[in-house]
């Protein structure tokens, strides 16, 4: 197996920073107020992991209540889900239980779940403790990570972990919806522009930064602001393939 293609859906309440996470990670844009997402936006990116090309089709969904009825359209056949809550708003954390249940009931194939506590920059006013969130994540079989889209902390780790999980899933051959290809050039199912490999970023499979492991939880119950040892310049960014504008 040389390449996999997976559908990733980002879910969570209104205003927790779902769009910020994905745009900060992919586009490195700094615009603070994009307004609420309408239904869902689509992004795509790819990562390299131990020689496997992982292409992610990311659906960034709207958090507003009125779009809940159409959410199934976006999480159906998803291979991974990112459940985002705002560390400083306990209600947004409670809402995740609803999303987790809904996914469990409606998605048959195994999924890589990741719970993300966003807005680590507001850690002074956090209302959800790391331990609580970690236990919840474990209870639904998810990874737990904390990020700050504002400071671009932990975002790479979230997507890297998901990619790792997807490769594992593909190796286990359990998922029917996960697309596997034997050549890394096969991912061109619906677009011809992705052949340009320079846009993707290559990383060895590393564990860096924010992922919260069990030992970590017991060491302190106070959220800590991690400053990664690497700076943003050392890591190539996954680039959004804003394809189609041919004249660059």
């Amino acid at each position: 197996m040389k390449a996999i293609e997976a559908k990733v859906v980002i879910l969570g309440s209104e205003g927790v920073g779902k769009t910020s996470i994905v745009t900060r990670y992919l586009k490195n844009v700094t615009s603070s107020d994009q307004g609420p997402t309408i239904s869902a936006s689509f992004f795509s990116c790819k990562l390299y992991l131990d020689g496997v090309k992982v292409k992610l089709q990311v659906w960034d969904t709207a958090g507003q209540e009125r779009f809940r009825a159409v959410a199934p359209m976006y999480y159906r056949n998803a291979n991974a889900a990112i459940l985002v809550f705002d560390l400083s708003q306990h209600k947004t954390y409670r809402d995740l239980k609803m999303w987790a249940q809904e996914l469990q009931r409606n998605v048959q194939d195994p999924m890589i779940l990741t719970v993300v506590g966003n807005k680590l920059d507001l850690h002074a006013t956090r209302t959800v403790s790391r331990e609580e969130a970690f236990l919840f994540a474990s209870s639904i079989g998810a990874n737990y990570m904390e990020t700050s889209a504002l400071n671009e902390q932990g975002l790479n780790q979230v997507f890297l972990r998901i990619a790792e999980g997807l490769v594992r899933l593909a190796n286990e051959n359990k998922s029917q919806t996960l697309r596997r290809y034997d050549s890394s050039n096969s991912i061109s199912a619906y677009s011809n522009v992705f052949a340009d490999d320079d846009q993707a970023f290559h990383l060895p499979s590393v564990h860096l930064g924010i992922p919260v492991e069990e030992g970590d939880v017991h060491s302190s119950d106070v959220g800590r602001l991690e400053t990664p040892s690497w700076s943003i310049d050392h890591i190539a960014h996954g680039s959004v393939e804003t394809t189609g504008w041919c004249c660059y």
């Binding site: 994009q34 609420p36 936006s41 689509f42 159409v70």
Partner: peptide
């Protein structure tokens, strides 16, 4: 809806 400017959207 400013958000349409960020990325392609798919909405009912």
């Amino acid at each position: 809806s400013e958000s349409f400017k960020t990325a392609e959207s798919w909405t009912p």
